[in-house]
Design a protein around this nucleic acid. Structure first.
Lengths: 343, 343
DNA sequence: CTGAAAGCGCTTACAG
DNA sequence: CTGAAAGCGCTTACAG
């Protein structure tokens, strides 16, 4: 029982005009007289005319749909980015198709392909953790506009939007030093994570600049930077002879795990051991003591990425390597009880 | 520098066949010989043929895209539902377009309209809080397949997928009674929320069944069932002369606010006052004591809703009121420290 | 300022 | 078993 859909043809017949004229009037073509335009537009409105996007897209080879692919949509930070993308896209007249890779490279590639098949005008992607197989992505980036955000990779020559991971981590560690900490542990991910490596670099840089000795024993790497592993690592750090006086976990979840463990052993936070996370997720204000962390403006990342993508789409310069750039969105250190100045 | 796209025509020329035959071969039409099919399919693969979904959709008046609209995508539970939708949709060859209403009715209507304009085959919606203006939705539901999930409304005659709110709340309250609580407060939303009303109904039913007096003074309603309001309500409940010995907050966030407040006043949980939330969000295991709550299987809701929608799409029976049904997905009470049996 | 016509890539009745 | 042709709803060079 679908409703009768108004088409250009119907409008044309009604007004005794040609389809061409009606089409042009609706698109504000300069050749058409204002008189006609007004007549056409009024009728269109009264007949509830909705252009058939498919015919249009088909004709112009443009769908006004952008595809986005993320590892895990249930992460608060990711959802926040998605929200930014949705806002900006809808403002500019684009719709958004979403896929989740679940950190599965095979799935990610499948999804990229179906997106292209579905005729998206461009793709915004946040990579899986182990995106070693850049091979599947490289052919795509000169097929259509493609931009990376959050989980990016410098192996892929395209525009990338991230946060200033290195600087943010540097600020975290410097803050810990400023409150008097001298033996700062870090819990990071294994090598393949871009973000983790950047944060680690910031950590090292801060220690060096403040001439603090780097001790491998308190630099821990895990496969999956989760709450569970945070707990495990905290236990390890407590067991070594020369305990750290601060723990920087590269993720809020891990930091929460650390705090829970320290609480269990009645270790005073931040006096005995200070703790810092990363993300400013909701947990950070629910755990006791409240967590010092880095706020990442997901909304800004999403909007920025979308702006760049649409610009590329509308200029039709498919990922010109020359025009690719890396944009770093500024984060902010949020200081809470887990590192409060001791005095 | 877009790559040359393989079309049916190119395949046809290459094989000296007609476009019709190639099209039929690719679609496994019974009229075509196996020989031809194999030849065509092989060439298609080697030439990397991808059907143009727009031409196809345009021709068949079908986009294979479903639209979903939710109030807030950053809510963990919502993201979980979205994940379920994505999984099921992609399994059945559909793509998903997402919009966020931010609980704004005007925006919601705009989005519904653009979705229809974008030619989605059907819509899955979770309503804004104050969807009193059903008026805008009613005309839609007999235009195309339309299904409600999570935030539903019995004013709209279409298939609805929710959790068993009433039963779940009943179980919560019965559990509190079983551990010896006799004066159970509830923090709910104001009247316009469907879910809140159902949970409230479950609350009342349990009290009645166990012949516990209903006291308006410990039935609190808020506009926005957030952590902040949870705190505020907890303060109110602590200030009344005859304090409750249990608080059922209709949301985990509010329950967390309650716990933080009780902790501040050193009230023993659950001995003095037990606390229950709703959602089994991540916070519920981060707060101390860990929160008893109701687990809502978002994934199942998403999948179920999608299955029904696609069924409606493919049967082309647009929201036959006769076939509309309300499906309740079962929840599970998760008992944790905030209500542990006292003995 | 307006119209007739071609064409985007596909499917499908119709004919053989 | 295969092909020629129409048509889905739109835009746009071409002609007037």
């Amino acid at each position: 029982m679908k409703k009768e859909i108004t088409t250009l043809k119907m409008l044309a017949q009604n007004l005794n005009l040609s389809i061409s004229t009606v089409s042009r009037a609706l698109n504000d073509h300069p050749d058409i007289s204002d008189d006609t335009k007004i007549k056409v537009k009024n009728l269109a409105k009264s007949m509830n005319y909705i252009p058939n996007i498919f015919a249009k897209g088909f004709r112009k080879h443009k769908s006004n749909i952008i595809g986005i692919i993320v590892p895990n949509i249930t992460h608060y930070f990711t959802a926040t980015i998605v929200r930014g993308i949705l806002e900006e896209a809808s403002k500019q007249g684009y719709r958004v198709i979403i896929s989740e890779s679940n950190n599965d490279v095979i799935k990610q590639n499948e999804m990229l392909n179906t997106m292209i098949q579905f005729g998206v005008d461009g793709i915004l992607a946040s990579l899986t953790k182990m995106t070693k197989d850049i091979d599947n992505i490289l052919p795509i980036i000169d097929t259509l506009p493609f931009i990376l955000f959050d989980k990016v990779s410098d192996k892929i020559p395209c525009t990338q939007i991230t946060i200033n991971d290195e600087e943010a981590a540097f600020n975290v560690v410097e803050h810990l030093i400023n409150i008097g900490k001298k033996r700062i542990a870090i819990i990071k991910e294994r090598e393949f994570s871009y973000n983790s490596e950047k944060r680690y670099a910031g950590y090292l840089k801060a220690l060096k600049e403040h001439q603090i000795e780097i001790d491998e024993k308190i630099i821990l790497s895990v496969d999956d930077i989760s709450l569970q592993h945070g707990k495990r690592m905290a236990n390890i750090l407590l067991s070594i002879k020369n305990r750290p006086d601060a723990i920087f976990a590269i993720t809020d979840s891990a930091a929460v795990g650390v705090i829970q463990t320290l609480n269990k052993f009645n270790i005073k936070i931040p006096e005995d051991i200070a703790v810092v996370g990363f993300s400013n997720s909701k947990y950070s204000t629910i755990i006791e003591p409240k967590l010092t962390t880095v706020d990442q403006p997901g909304n800004t990342i999403g909007k920025t990425a979308t702006k760049y993508l649409i610009k590329e789409i509308e200029n039709d310069n498919t990922n010109d390597i020359a025009t690719s750039k890396t944009v770093e969105v500024k984060t902010q250190l949020i200081i809470r009880e887990s590192t409060f100045k001791i005095s």
